[in-house]
Design a protein around this nucleic acid. Sequence first.
DNA 1: ACTATAAGTTAGCTTTGGCTACAGATCAAT
DNA 2: ATTGATCTGTAGCCAAAGCTAACTTATAGT
Lengths: 154, 154
Amino acid sequence: MEPSPEEVPEGGSPGQMPAEPTQAERFGKARTAQAVALTEDYVELIADLMVAGGEARLVDIARRLGVSHPTAVKSIRRLKREGLATARPYRGVFLTQAGQELAERVRTRHRVVVELLRAVGVPADAAEADAEGIEHHVSRATLEAFSRFLTARR
Amino acid sequence: MEPSPEEVPEGGSPGQMPAEPTQAERFGKARTAQAVALTEDYVELIADLMVAGGEARLVDIARRLGVSHPTAVKSIRRLKREGLATARPYRGVFLTQAGQELAERVRTRHRVVVELLRAVGVPADAAEADAEGIEHHVSRATLEAFSRFLTARR
DNA sequence: ACTATAAGTTAGCTTTGGCTACAGATCAAT
DNA sequence: ATTGATCTGTAGCCAAAGCTAACTTATAGT
């Protein structure tokens, strides 16, 4: 796989990083992406609920995500900490400017991924279901390629 | 003071349990897939190392996955528990029959995903990188669609 | 107005994947 | 054969996301 095993000094010094995107880096990134994916799911859902019903209540968020309310509370707290959302008890959860921007990007990406899947022949239900997991791993470059592909064949 | 009327979560038409794959179910599945993804990564890598160098040493596995050796030890232990691998200290890790079959499926799926991405115009490096995360969320139906698409346009 | 229900929160536990530090085993070189 | 380096494994800790149970606070129904 790698013809030149770079002499990396032992000792676990997390200082320098080789230029090539090693497999380790890719795996590591995929793992870190987990937390990001969660954030994106919440933000996307909150935006959805706002559009659909004018408000995003904790209970609804929890139910739609299939988690218990306390779990949702924890996650929302994280969103607040990260400046993506605010919440007023019994009034619902709201997205900040940053949150809305993120939601918009996520929503767009989701739509493009589903369309791409449909375009290459994936059945609707599978496309929707798989997109939920796939979307979080679609990089900017890949997303752009998807868009180009869809535009070209439209 | 806990009446706890746990029966009947919510009122509504009898025989609920909507046929539609609710969003909650999809999210839940995507989350559970996390553990599976890890298993697949390990199995795939072990197979790779075996092919490349004839053996899969713990240190190499850890380095290639970008984790510490103890973490790799824990994961390998899980693989052994699940009947996917065996290991003889200082002789490397080996895949069982089940492990090899899983590795083969994973390897094939990975290849198809990368090819699909390339086919719709994703640059090689992005395709490789993104496939690492995407592949774990590609269902059987989607994989088959990918294969058909690739065959058709070849 | 009062109380019942629903919504939100807090506390505390579990699991899982990650880490460091340390200990034990094997291999290789002198 | 000894010794030092390297590989493997164990112990113990952390953080994150999940859960249940219990408590508090609004909202709504009578």
